[in-house]
Nucleic acid binder design. Structure first.
Lengths: 326, 326
DNA sequence: CTGAAAGCGCTTACAG
DNA sequence: CTGAAAGCGCTTACAG
C-alpha cells in the first residue's frame, strides 16, 4: 500500500487539494463535490496526516504527560481524558515520563515544539523548571493532581481526605498511631494528605503520631511497617496509599499480629483489590474519572479562550472496610 | 515564549538551517560550528519539531496501539517498549483503543498516515480487516500477545501455560472441575489458554470439565462462579485471569465455601495483588517485560531490514500459592 | 564542510 | 463554491 496523500485524493475526486482540505476543516464545499470526495476517501481509507498541518492555527491534538503507565489511577485518568477529547474531536498524544523528572521536562518541551493545542500534565513534582516552562508556555497547560502556583490545576482534595481519615481512625482513640508516608517533593500526597491526617487525629485529641517516609512501592510499605514496629508499640497504621497498606498487611501477618485487633490499618486510593483483603481495607477513593474529565474540559476551554477557574478540587469517598476498630 | 524554529536557531548561530538540520541528523558539521549551534540550542531549550520532518526518510517515531490503559500488564508492556525505544533514539507514540475494535483500526490507520517508522500492535482481536491492514501496511508492524497469520508476532506461551496449570490442578484429581474463560475472539486467552488447561487436565485422566464464558471483569468472575455453582457440584475453579479468580474468591467467601478445602482456585497473570489474598492465589506470570522488549527490538530490526523470526514465544513462571489442594 | 533550492503533505488568505 | 500560490518547519540532493 503506497502512502496516499491529499493531493492524490484531490486528483481522484477531480478537485484541488485546497478543496479536500476545506472538506476536512469544515470550509465551503458544494454538496455534490463533498460526496465525490467522501467516496474517494472511503475507497482508499484515507486519513490526513495530522502532523503535516504545519500551517494550521490549531492542530486538534492535545498532549498528555504522565509519570508512569503502570498505575491503575493513572490509567483511569488517561482513559477519562482520552474519551472526553475524542468526543470533542481532539486527538490524544500520550507521553510517559517513567518517574524521571528530566524525562518529564523533556516530554513537555517536545510537546510544545510539536505545536499541540494544549498540554495536560500529571506531574511527579513541581520544580522551578516546571514553573518556568508552564509560565512561558506558548500553549495552555493544565496540571493534574498537583497544585501549580500561577498555573491552572485540577486536584484531589488531599487535605480534606486526610482529615476525614484521621478523624475516622482517631475516633477509636489509638494510643500509638503511626503514619507511613511518601517524599515531600510530592506536595499533594507527601505534605497535604499527611497534614490532613495529623490534624484529623489532633481533632480527636491525638497529637502524637510517629511518622515514616518511603517511596510508593509495596516493598517500601513493608519496610516502613517493620521500622514502625521496631521503633516502639504501634496500634494504628495510616498508610498514604493502599499499596503501602498492602505492605503493612504482609508484615503484620508475618508477625502474627491481627488486623484490627492488634493494629488498625487504613489506606488511600480505593483500589479494587483492597476489597479482597482479609479484613477488607478501610480506604478512601478519589474520583479519578472526574479529575481527568475536568482536566480535559478545562484545557479545551483555555484553548477556546473561555473563562476557567484557576484551581478545581475533586471530591472523594470513604470506603469503610474491616481494618479499623470501631 | 514564542515558538522557536530551526531557522531561528540557524540565524542565531550564524549558519543556515541546512547546517542545523545536519547537526541533528548526524551529517557533516565542523567541530567549531557544531559547538556554536549547540550553545544556541541549549540557551533556547530548542527541540526540533519531530513531525515537521515531512521529507525525512525515517521519522524515528514508533506508534504503539494498546487495547486499554488501565491494566497492569499493558502498563508493564508499554513501559518496557518505551524504555527500549528511548534507549535506541526513538520516540514512542501511544494510542489507546479503549476496547473498541473500530477505534483500534482507526488508530492503526492514523499512525500509518503519520508516517511513523513502525507500529507495535497489542490487538484486542485479529479481524480480517486487521489482516488486510497489516499485510498492506507501508511500514512494518509487530503484533503483541496475539498471533498474526502472515505477520510478525511476539506472544505469550498460552497453550503451555494452560497445560502446566491444568496438570498442576489435575494432580489433586478434582472430581468436578470448572473453567472460567473469556470470549473466543481473543484467540490467545479465549482459545489457546483454555485448550492448554483442558489438555493438561486430560493428561491427568480428567476429561470432563464444565466450561463458562464471560468478559474480563471482576463482576464477570463473580457471575461465572455463581453460574458454575448453580450448574452442579464444583471442587476446582480454573480462571483464565487473576481478576476472574478475584471474583471467584468473593463469591465463594459469601457462600461460606473454603478455599481450597471446598473449592480449589487457580488464576493466570501473576498480579502482585494475588499474593495478598487469603489463601494466596496460585497463579502463573507471563513475562510482560520481555514481551515488550522483544516486540520493540523486533520492530527496529524490521525497520532496519534485518532478519527476524516470524513468531517469538515468551516464557512464563508458575507462582504457587495456597489455593490448590496438594 | 556549508549553503541555495526544491520539496514533504498540508492550510490559508486571496482571487475569481 | 473552487483554484493558484505562498508558506508551515523541516530534509535532502546538489553545487561549491
Amino acid at each position: 500500500m503506497e502512502k496516499i496523500t491529499m493531493a492524490d485524493i484531490a486528483q481522484l475526486a477531480g478537485v484541488t487539494k485546497s478543496t479536500v482540505s476545506r472538506y476536512f476543516n469544515g470550509g465551503y464545499v458544494r454538496q455534490e463535490t463533498r460526496e465525490r470526495i467522501q467516496e474517494v476517501i472511503k475507497k482508499y481509507n484515507y486519513t490526513p496526516n495530522t502532523f503535516a498541518r504545519l500551517k494550521a492555527r490549531n492542530s486538534r491534538v492535545v498532549g498528555v504527560v504522565v509519570p508512569a503507565l503502570n498505575s491503575k489511577i493513572t490509567g483511569r485518568v488517561i482513559t477519562s481524558i482520552d474519551r472526553y477529547l475524542r468526543k470533542e474531536g481532539y486527538e490524544t498524544l500520550i507521553k510517559n515520563s517513567d518517574h524521571d523528572v528530566k524525562q518529564e521536562l523533556e516530554n513537555i518541551r517536545q510537546l510544545m515544539s510539536l505545536n499541540v493545542d494544549g498540554i495536560l500534565l500529571s506531574a511527579i513534582t513541581i520544580t522551578p523548571e516546571h514553573l518556568e516552562l508552564t509560565q512561558n508556555s506558548p500553549v495552555p497547560i493544565v496540571v493534574l493532581a498537583q497544585e501549580c502556583p500561577g498555573g491552572f490545576s485540577v486536584v484531589d482534595d488531599d487535605y480534606q481526605a486526610g482529615f476525614a481519615m484521621g478523624q475516622l481512625v482517631g475516633r477509636s482513640h489509638p494510643s500509638h498511631p503511626a503514619y507511613l508516608g511518601v517524599e515531600e517533593s510530592d506536595i499533594a500526597v507527601g505534605i497535604e494528605r499527611r497534614r490532613g491526617v495529623l490534624e484529623g487525629l489532633k481533632s480527636c485529641g491525638i497529637p502524637d503520631v510517629r511518622i515514616f517516609q518511603g517511596d510508593y512501592s509495596y516493598e517500601s510499605g513493608q519496610e516502613m511497617t517493620r521500622r514502625a514496629l521496631r521503633s516502639g508499640p504501634v496500634d494504628a497504621l495510616i498508610c498514604a496509599t493502599d499499596r503501602l497498606a498492602y505492605g503493612a498487611y504482609r508484615v503484620l501477618g508475618e508477625m502474627g499480629l491481627s488486623i484490627p485487633g492488634d493494629v488498625a490499618v487504613a489506606g488511600f486510593g480505593g483500589y479494587d483489590e483492597s476489597a479482597l483483603l482479609t479484613p477488607i481495607l478501610t480506604t478512601l477513593k478519589f474520583d479519578s474519572y472526574t479529575l481527568g474529565y475536568l482536566g480535559a474540559e478545562t484545557l479545551l476551554k483555555l484553548i477556546r479562550q473561555e473563562p476557567v477557574p484557576q484551581k478545581q478540587v475533586v471530591g472523594f469517598q470513604m470506603i469503610p472496610g474491616g481494618s479499623l476498630r470501631s
